Simulated scan of single mutants.
Amino acid sequence: MTAAMVTAGVATAGAIAAALVAPVAAQVRIARAARPLTDGWSGMPVAGRGATRLGLSFRPRQAEAMGLESDACLRTLLAYPFQVIRLAAYWDRIEPAPGSFQPDELDRQIDAAEQAGKDIIVCVGAVKAFGYPEFFVPGHHLPQPLREGRLVEPGHHPALLGAATGFVTQIVRRYRDRPAIVAWQVEHEAVDPLGMEHSWRLSEDFVRREVDAVRAADPTRPVLMNGFLPTSLPVAVQQGWRTRDQGDSLSVAQRLADIVGVDFYPRHALVAAAGRSVYLDGSRTPWQQRRRRRLFARAAATGKQVMVSEGQAEPWEAVTDPPSPDHAGMYSCLPEHVIGNFNQCMRWSREARSPVSAYLFWGAEYWLLRERGGDSRYLRAFQRVLECS
């Protein structure tokens, strides 16, 4: 090999490395986490929503973790003029002991939503449902922890599958005569790993059996399945590698569900130290746009709806609970992002052959926490979308 060839090889390798590093670097932000609050949100334009219906998800456990009374929170939120609310059947709460069935909390939530004139999506689980820690199997159905790094498959976990399909069937049969219920959600980000805390994953076949059970119990309503849309290259690479054997939850939702739900979080923190955090923000990258366009195109071709099942409207920092500092907001989601994230998704809807059927804001309990602390900006930004879209 000549010196010229070596030089050329080094130059080529350098160019490749630069081509890989540059997109990642463009998506990384190092910023002070707590930011001064402004009223910039109050003058932002709000995109028209057309036929898209607006709503939110309600997480009673999140409300309780924030020191709020969950039933009172729900009543407060239901007074706002949105159309759709997503509620969850948390398996370990409804079946706290073998043979028990205690749906009183969910009964109250559905009653309240019906009386407020809302349409309801019920996440029946069973294994996963929205809201930290997203895993709600009662201990008596899982005497041994699920094995890390493995798929949870029907053949290896027949008892868990039988209990899960029995639970979703019981929930659907209890509420299927409620006209306000418009869809059933099966699992939550069904086949993705459970964050960074666990590496086991539900297999597509396991989830298919649950979907079949829901449809057998109620053939009249559509099934929603949701998935996380990676908005940065590092997250996309990690997600692709960890789910390479069967595809991620969005891919499985496109195969199994009637409604494909997109969970959209444009900006989130990785690590934090000394008041600063490292953030990923790739919401406008070409990769994310391509994936999203393919998803919409396939939905249109197969007659499926697409909805934004979670539109980020609370901070995602490098801690479990979103911080709520006095007289400051968090960089990952300021009040203006409540509107900005909505606007971006409405732009998707306008350019797609299959528009967004609904947009559900994520973080309503946080808005109430902020209001209790004297900052109503998040709630008012949400209200502005309702009034101006």
Rank of each mutant, 00 (worst) to 15 (best):
K304Y: 04
T220F: 12
M330Y: 03
F136D: 05
Q289Y: 01
Y331G: 00
A253D: 05
H327M: 06
I121D: 05
V319S: 15
P143E: 08
V271L: 14
T243P: 00
M307T: 05
A129Q: 14
P143M: 12
A274Q: 10
V152I: 15
V207E: 02
R276K: 09
T302M: 02
R61T: 15
G227F: 01
Y132P: 00
A213W: 11
V84N: 04
G139V: 01
D92K: 14
G67N: 13
A358I: 09
S100P: 01
F82A: 12
E314P: 00
Y90A: 01
G155T: 07
W91H: 05
D177F: 03
A269V: 02
R221C: 08
R29A: 13
A216M: 10
D192W: 00
L368D: 12
E197L: 13
V186C: 05
I181G: 00
W362L: 05
G99D: 09
A313L: 08
P60N: 12
A19R: 06
G373E: 12
S203Y: 14
A22I: 14
S309N: 13
Q254V: 01
A22Q: 13
S251W: 12
A381K: 05
R221W: 06
L386D: 04
M346C: 14
V46M: 02
R255S: 02
L142R: 14
A79C: 10
L368Q: 15
P286L: 09
F264A: 08
F58C: 10
P335M: 08
V84W: 06
P138E: 03
R292I: 02
R267K: 15
D92A: 13
F228H: 15
A26K: 06
R93G: 08
A272P: 01
G282W: 09
G311I: 13
S249W: 01
L224A: 04
F101G: 07
A113L: 11
